[in-house]
Design a protein around this nucleic acid. Sequence first.
RNA 1: GCCGAAGUGGCGGAAUUGGUAGACGCGCACGACUCAAAAUCGUGUUCCUUAGGGAGUGUGGGUUCGAUUCCCACCUUCGGUACCA
Length: 914
Amino acid sequence: MNHILKMAEFKFADIEKKWQKYWLEKDIYKTKTDKDKPKYYILDMFPYPSGQGLHVGHPLGYIATDIVARYKRMKGFNVLHPMGFDSFGLPAEQYAIETGRHPADTTRENIERFKEQLSVLGFSYDWSKEVRTSEPDYYRWTQWIFLKLFNSYYDKKENKALPIENLKIPSDLTDSEKESYLAMYRLAYQDDIMVNWCPMLGTVLANEEVIGGVSERGGYPVVRKPMKQWMLRITAYADRLIEDLEDLEWPESIKLSQKNWVGRSTGAEVDFSVKDSNDFIRVFTTRPDTLFGATYMVLAPEHPLVSKITTHERRQKVDKYISRAGQKSDLERTDLEKTKTGEFTGAYVINPVNRQEIPIWISDYVLISYGTGAIMAVPGGDQRDFEFAKKFNIDITEVITPDGKPSKMLEQAYPGEGIMLNSGEYNGMDSLRFKQVIVEWLVKQGIGKASVNYKLRDWVFTRQRYWGEPIPLIHTEDGKVVAVPEEDLPVVLPDVDSFTGTKEGDSPLAKVDSWVNIINPVDGKPAKRETNTMPQWAGSCWYYLRYLDNHNTREFATKDKTDYWLPVDLYIGGAEHAVLHLLYARFWHKVLYDLGYIQQKEPFKKLINQGMIQGRSSFVYRIKGTNKYVSYNLKNEHEVDAIHVDINLVKDDMLDIEAFKKSRSGKQEVVEFILEDGKYICGHEIEKMSKSLLNVVTPDAIIEKYGADTFRLYEMFLGPLEQSKPWNTNGIDGVFKFLRKFWNLFHDAHGIFEVSDEKPTVNEFKIAHKTIKKVQEDIERLSFNTAVSAFMICVNELTATKCHKREILEPLVIALSPFAPHMAEELWEKLGHSSTVTGSDFPSYNEEYLREDTHEYPISINGKLRAKMTFALDMPNDDIEKQVLANEVIKKWTEGKTPKKVIIVPRRIVNIVV
RNA sequence: GCCGAAGUGGCGGAAUUGGUAGACGCGCACGACUCAAAAUCGUGUUCCUUAGGGAGUGUGGGUUCGAUUCCCACCUUCGGUACCA
């Protein structure tokens, strides 16, 4: 740290504090909306304010967006660059359950901590635009959007959502029938579904909150349980969610994940009638062309017809299978069960194409939640059916082979296309053609039709939790559900004594009688509030809209603001949101678009996923059953447990034994060590950066040591934004040195400011202008690491020419300011400006200075570099060829051979083929 | 299993349209300054080499005058997904 103290003239800590204060006091980053300027909306995925604060991974994307925001402002755009907090969520509530502290209090404290940490990084956020999803002013409009969903239906003809009033209701319905009719169409509706219920936590958990059958937090058992939940009809938007991806500038991989998640598949629905019964069973298949090969049928154990069709003799076994399947979690049903199980129901259906009677089985490899919950099994064409048929000795009929001839040894299903066989009059037909023919036939018979299915399910939108948006609905005494009138929003979260739900699965809110029991404002009769709350995704579904007009108390945002600012031009955040957040937000956006509240069909035009910054965990190795720790290279001689050790106790993989002992001193144990060469060497591994893995590095210490400008520059210099990489500070001296060298261009050897007005040389102009060009291009393509590198080259070259000239340095200060805003402001001031560098125009480069008259050509023979020669760019190829062949070195290599061909690519290369 | 991303010096990485592979930085080595060390500055730094050269971007093949870049097959790592009929 000596070297930092010695460079007393570059006092980054003072400089950074000074300018942060200045920016704040002068309100420099207030969003401007000059009507004659183009707009640029640049958005960060806002953080959940966890109690752990920021680690070095968080700012990566924020630094990138800050650079772009500053750059775009200097390029003449009105820039909107806001920040806020996704402040409803599980951790705060779990913390409340454990400590009794109110989530509102801990959340507020955490946000303050986050904002403090963000402020020292010198970001140019307009904090007057801040939103917090857990504030009533904000969630009032989350609730309002929910009511829009509740009061809308999806009109299939117009292919858009419309107000529920537009829905034509059959005239012969009673009042309560009308209600249930509407409920079938509303975009928000109630349904009984299977949820992950955690009795110990007293709440349902999202799928991603359940790991290996136990809760992620606490490790409590989770059971599958049917519960009434509010659902959002996202499936109505399935096609549009796929189609509209087309025009988005998103990573192809993200588009693909979204497509796969929606999982559109086309095929046909076919009705099979049950033998000796009026019932029929509908199946969905993507391969109607294999209909002749259907030799049995499988129902999901939960299929409603199972109990009806099961014969007396089979009932006991079938019931037993159903109850066993019901107890299994989804995980057990899928992952662990490699061999197929099932039971025969005793019943048969008729295959409509060949009148064959085929047995009906039940098996949990068929899911009730996909398609119709029933399949026609074609063991000849589907590997799963094949395995099942083999196990239970069911007929296997080949109906498609590549050549239309039966295969000799049938060892697996053939799922491809080919020529039909064993298919009656259609034998010999191409299977693709037959697919169309058979669907037409099914339609004519009235027993089937072409059909589309989706993997996407409707969105389970309720949680039995406290710390979320209350759902603004009222349950009347006669069993109706009505919306809270818009003017009564927000429905504010009441205070509670206990943050846990009930054993029966009600939300903690259900225990607050004074809140639950109300007078229905519509008819004046007693009624009860809905006590479930919304999932954490709700608030983040639309926050980018609220930034536009966050203080508006009459609308979520005015039309002129949404018209001007939307869509988001650049959205940067982690890839972990590739599917859910981005899909949910697009869905809500489209609903608001359909209902006419916004004019753009997609919210985020360009999306970039920043890579994850991983942590480097350190390990110590404890001999099993002892308190003896053995050094890394000796651990194989013992049976050991690898234990994470706080990386702050480790330097260069060497454990600070005294500090380690101290950290364990509370545990009353005698710790022993087995050392190598008198040292304890730790093991290491690259893992996610997380407090529980003791590998978290925070920006705080680095900023203290090097300053925010260095930190910003270093995170950008680490590598491409989109690439994941483990954190290490090995190279940070390099960018720190660079900043000091840049600083020194403005100062003499004694640290006195010294910039001359001397006319620069052509070479100096060239250095500056090629740098500006490169930096501009690199920012535009978000290649920040190469931009930093260009600055380094520039500074090295200017240092070599001892250039201290204003005409060169001034534009470079502006160009550097998006990356290192504090130092840039300081130098800008020293250059005598009274305005901020932040408000300057980005320098333009002059092609004049970059023009080359000559080019140094690499001369290669058969692709191998042999010499270099410089030629004027306007020299004819013939002359170049003559000179090259006359060159001594080249002569030596071509000696005795005649060149077959000489390839001259202007400004590139000369290649001689011999 | 399926889908996706990526494999380049001791390390992070660069090469934007098929045209000098290894920019820039770290580290390391040597030198200058110093009583010395640190810091700073300078020089060098892909590997092999018999010093002529030769090899080289995960592996093997292909297209091309020329391939990190395009095509085929394979290997490894990371991420997503999980019987979706």
